[in-house]
Every structure is written in structure tokens, then in C-alpha cells.
Design a protein around this nucleic acid. Structure first.
Lengths: 323, 323
DNA sequence: GCGCAGACATAACCATCGGTTATAGAAGCA
DNA sequence: TGCTTCTATAACCGATGGTTATGTCTGCGC
């Protein structure tokens, strides 16, 4: 028995159609036909009754459909645990992150962790936009530095570390690129460079879909990683919201970053699986993150008065913050 | 993920050796080497450390070894339930049996069941010796008529239906074939026709290994089904213990059945999975079995006085019982 | 020290599996 | 009738899972 077959089966059961399930699974319809046929042959049982309108579960199929999700989950959970045990045995903490991780605090967090946990190594795994949990959801990493909110956030432990305003990234030639600040409503009709559709709420968040007062979004391009994203913007395919820190971490000729008013700020958090709380290394890493937060926050609060006007003048943030 | 791989992995983990596990799994050692390698590659994790002396689990391997048995079981359980749901939906009760099932009571049981459960059909599945649970253990049947004791009996519900003495089946040319009765110790040095080694305690029971006072068993042949068994005995490869009813159900030229003293009797029982108690059809079938038991027992008790001497004269039992 | 035995790894080969594209059938619908 | 939309089938291809034969390393007995 094979979990792939079970996932195929569940997809067909859910969509009620081979053709539809094939689309969801990114395989061809004949492949699904064959695999479902094989599964039925293996079991010696008809799982679906075929009709022109689609595939409908038999009673046996319903029995399997009740069991299969738990099975698939249990398998994946076991594989996660195995990988996790391997990295723990090798004294490696796997940290997933998106784009610039926790910005300037990242170095500090990692340094604090390696101090606190001698003999351990940190493996940083950068994730594409298409995985907003940076591999945490599927157990590829033990802990992650993420942009909030992200899909699946409810089933993980999360602590907010940093908050920063969302700016807009524009083609340097864009008329708004000369402005000191941009009101979000001025961007409503602009084409946007978006994350892949599969990321759902995360994509919507970076399109600020909730803050458009119902105006539809124009998608100019879809990209899955920072370099593609910068390229798309520089090419003029569209604009995009980005954390203010992108101006420092992703400065690039042809791309301008400007403050935006009228959109909520972005949060960076540290996230870890509920079960990971038992792992001393994970706990220690989280503690290092929280210590960095207090440090950064007090720092930022102190700077806030002087920065606020500064930042709005644009341009030299990166020098100031890299001092 | 594939349960075959998990089973392979567990076999290697248990035996601590590829070569040994390959023997157990009836595959070649290179096949196992490749599969274990594939599993490790899929996980991106070393599960074993190789050494001259064999394979020893890494910490990751230990983590997987803890999880895997439950996974494999859960998968098999799900498949069992699916098949069971299919047969229930088709109003078919799958009944496994060994050799002559419940002897003359079988017909009566089935008739009573189909009366009590109108619209239902009974599918009888004869099993080879190599599966003393007649497919019950792996969910191929819903209920089974079995010879007791059998391996795995503890995890099933069992009710004894019939008890009959064990006789011996001999080549017709065997010196003891002329005797009215045989003492078991006279058979100690005879070669025996045995069930496959994989059946363990069941095979031992039919060799009466416990009643040899430590004398080793000589195995003349191993067979897996009634016809082979009869053939082996007729060919003179050995003798074998058999239920008295075999004289009626498996009478054959060249094979003689004689009563044996000094071995415990054989029991026939009805067995069903604990979960099957919830299935009305299974419950009904069991009830029919129990009703047949009381009928048969009273009948036998009444006949006992007249039969006892009769049976010891051998030979015509089959006529008498088929009247 | 030498050869042997035992255990894992590798090579070469073959059938089946899991996928593809192209196409056939059947049934609803304008 | 013809179009669309399902599922099923055919023909093909690379990867998988198995085989046998062989290599390589190591420990052991002499």
C-alpha cells in the first residue's frame, strides 16, 4: 500500500471526478484512471461507481475514505519525526525562513543560539513564497522565521518578533517612484506582482485584498522567489507590497521602494510545531528570538522618534541600518 | 511512502542484518540493499550504520522503527475494513475454513444462516494449511471455521463447536495400518507429513510435539493442502495425525486412518475478529454455529455408546456417517 | 601471513509500474 | 446534429523492484 495511491483516491473522492482530481494533483487523467483501477484491483473491491457525471464512492469506498486521511497523516508524521530525529542526532537545528528572515536580528539570534547550545549548528533553509511556512508545515525544519499571517498558522506555535510597515516596490520608471510616500488607494488599479495562487490567504495579504474596499486586484505577474520577484518588478510587470526592510535587503537597480499609507504593517514571527516544544534546542532558539525581540523593540522604540521622518525621506535607510 | 518499504525496513531493523532480513522476506539481499538505500534517499536520512557485523539503527532509524509498526498495522486495518465493507454492501458473508470445516455440521450452519439472514449469500473460502486462520487474520473473511489451537488465536473471539479425537493417517501399506488402534508412542520415530514451517505452533500441534516427551520429530514431507497431504501419505513419505472426521472427508485409496491413543483431541471452533462483533451478519452466523453445536453435541452424546466400539473397528465409518 | 567465510555493495539485466500524449466512446445539451 | 465533457484505452517511455553474478572488506582459524 502506497500513500500516493491513497492521496489520489482521496482527491478523486473529494472532487467526485477523475478529470477534476487529475487537475488538482497535477497528473494526467489517464494516469489517475489507471492508478484508481490498480487500487481497486489490489483491494479486489470497487471503490467508485462510474457515471458520466463523475465518480461516486461505493460503500467500500466510503469506508476507505473515512480511514485514509488519518493514514496519510500518520505516515507523514512518522517521516517528519524521523527527519527531525536525524537532525537532532546530528546536533543541527533546521531553521526555515522567508526572504530576509528576521532582518538584521537574524545574525544576532543565530549567534545567541550557537552560544547557548554549544556543539550545535544551524541550517538555514530559505523557502520560496509558495511555502509560507518555510518547510515547517511538512517537518522539513524544526523552527522558522516567517512573515505573518500565513496559512496553517493556527496549528503552530507563533510569537511575533518584529513589526514593520509595508512599503511598495515599484519599477524605478514608475510615475509614483518619485513620490515620497504613496497612498494605497493610488495603487488599487496598478497591476501587482503576486505570490503563487496556491498560497491563498498569504497571497491575499500581500495584495492587501482586505484593504481595497472591494476593488478587484489586477495581477501583472506571479513569482515564487525574491529574484524572480525583483526581476518582474524591474521589468515593469507590476508593483508589489513589501516589508520596509526589503529596501535594505533587496535594493536593486530598477526597483524603487516607497512608504505606503493605508495598509496595515507586516509582522515577522518565530514559529514552531506544538510537538517541537519538547525539543530543548527549539525551545532555546525561541528564547533567543524573544530576547532579540526585546532588544530590537527597545532599540526601535528609541529610534522611532528620529526615524519616522527620516524614513519618509526614503533612500538612505540601508546605510543607516547597516551601520 | 510505501508499506512494503516500511516492512522491509522493520525486518532489517529486527534482524540487524540485510542478509538475514532478505531470507525472512523471501527476497534477494541486493534487492533489500537497494530498497533500504532508496528509503534512506527518499528521507534524506541515514537509518542504519553499516558495519561488518550487520546493520544497526541510527537515532533516526530508531525513531522510524518506533512508528512504523503502528503505521503498517493501521494501513492493513484500513484495507481490511474496506474489503469488509464491500462484502457487507453486497450482502455476502465471507466464511473461511480449513479442510472439512465443521464437518457434517457445516451444511446445517450455512442453511440456518441463510434462513436467518434472508437476501444474504455465504462465500466459503477454503484455506491452505499455511493460513490456519483461513484468512481471518488478514481480513479476507468475516468469520472462520477453524481447527484449534491456531496462532493468533488470542486476538480473535473463538467458540469451540466440536471436539473429535485425533487419529493417524498412514500409507495403506504401512505395518501399523492393519492395527485397530495405535499408541502415539509407536509413531514417535515415524517420518511425519507436516504443515509448512511458517505455521509454527499449529504445525507443532499436528505433530503433537508436546506429547513426544522430548523425542525429536522426523519430517518426511511438508504439504500445504489436503490433496498434497493425501498424496504425500499415499506415497509413503510419512504418516500424519488427522481429525477422526478425515476418515470420512478424505477417504482415499492408499491412505488408511486409525485411532490413536495418547494424544489430546482436536477442536473445531468458530472464530471472528473482536471488531466483527458489531456486524449483525457475523453475530447471526456465530449464533447459528452455537445452535449447531448444541444439536451436534447432544446427538454425539447419544451416539457415543454405540459408536465407540464401532469406530475402533475402523473402515466403515464413512458409510455410517454418510447415511 | 594466508586463505576462507560472511556481510554489504555494485553491475547487468528484465518485467512491471507510473507517467505521458493521443484517441475512442458515451451521454448531456444547445 | 454537433459540441462539450466525462471516463476508458492504446502506445510509448523512464523509473522502480526484482533477479543473478560478482566485488570488496573484514574477522577468524590455521
Amino acid at each position: 500500500m502506497n500513500t500516493r495511491l491513497l492521496r489520489y483516491f482521496l482527491a478523486v473522492a473529494d472532487t467526485g471526478s477523475l478529470t477534476g482530481a487529475a487537475r488538482v494533483l497535477f497528473v494526467s487523467q489517464p494516469a489517475l484512471t489507471k492508478q484508481i483501477g490498480r487500487l481497486e484491483a489490489q483491494l479486489g473491491v470497487a471503490l467508485f461507481t462510474r457515471s458520466r457525471t463523475g465518480m461516486v464512492l461505493t460503500e467500500a469506498g466510503q469506508a476507505l475514505a473515512r480511514r485514509a486521511p488519518a493514514l496519510v497523516d500518520a505516515c507523514e508524521q512518522a517521516l517528519r519525526e524521523t527527519k527531525s530525529a536525524a537532525s537532532r542526532a546530528a546536533r543541527v537545528l533546521r531553521v526555515g525562513f522567508i526572504a530576509s528572515a528576521a532582518n538584521e536580528a537574524t545574525q544576532q539570534i543565530i549567534a545567541a543560539f550557537t552560544d547557548a547550545q554549544p556543539g550545535w549548528r544551524v541550517d538555514m533553509h530559505q523557502a520560496p513564497w509558495s511555502d509560507p511556512t518555510a518547510g515547517l508545515a511538512d517537518g522539513e525544519v524544526d523552527v522558522a522565521l516567517l512573515r505573518l499571517p500565513f496559512p496553517g498558522q493556527e496549528s503552530l506555535r507563533v510569537e511575533v518578533l518584529l513589526t514593520e510597515p509595508r512599503w511598495v516596490a515599484l519599477p524605478a520608471t514608475h510615475p509614483l517612484a518619485d513620490r515620497d510616500r504613496v497612498a494605497f488607494r493610488e495603487l488599487w488599479d496598478e497591476p501587482f506582482v503576486a505570490a503563487p495562487a496556491a498560497t491563498g490567504p498569504w497571497r491575499d495579504y500581500w495584495l492587501a485584498a482586505d484593504e481595497r474596499e472591494g476593488r478587484p486586484v489586477r495581477i501583472g505577474a506571479t513569482t515564487d522567489q525574491p529574484d524572480d520577484w525583483l526581476q518582474a518588478i524591474a521589468n515593469g510587470y507590476g508593483v508589489a507590497l513589501a516589508p520596509e526592510s526589503a529596501a535594505r535587503f533587496y535594493a536593486r537597480p530598477g526597483v524603487a521602494y516607497r512608504p505606503v499609507t493605508g495598509v496595515s504593517p507586516s509582522h515577522i514571527g518565530v514559529a514552531w510545531p506544538p510537538a517541537g516544544g519538547g525539543d530543548p534546542a527549539v525551545r532555546r532558539f525561541v528564547r533567543c528570538c524573544l530576547r532579540a525581540r526585546t532588544a530590537a523593540t527597545t532599540g526601535e522604540t528609541r529610534e522611532a522618534g528620529t526615524v519616522d521622518s527620516d524614513e519618509l525621506t526614503t533612500g538612505t535607510d540601508s546605510e543607516r541600518n547597516h551601520r
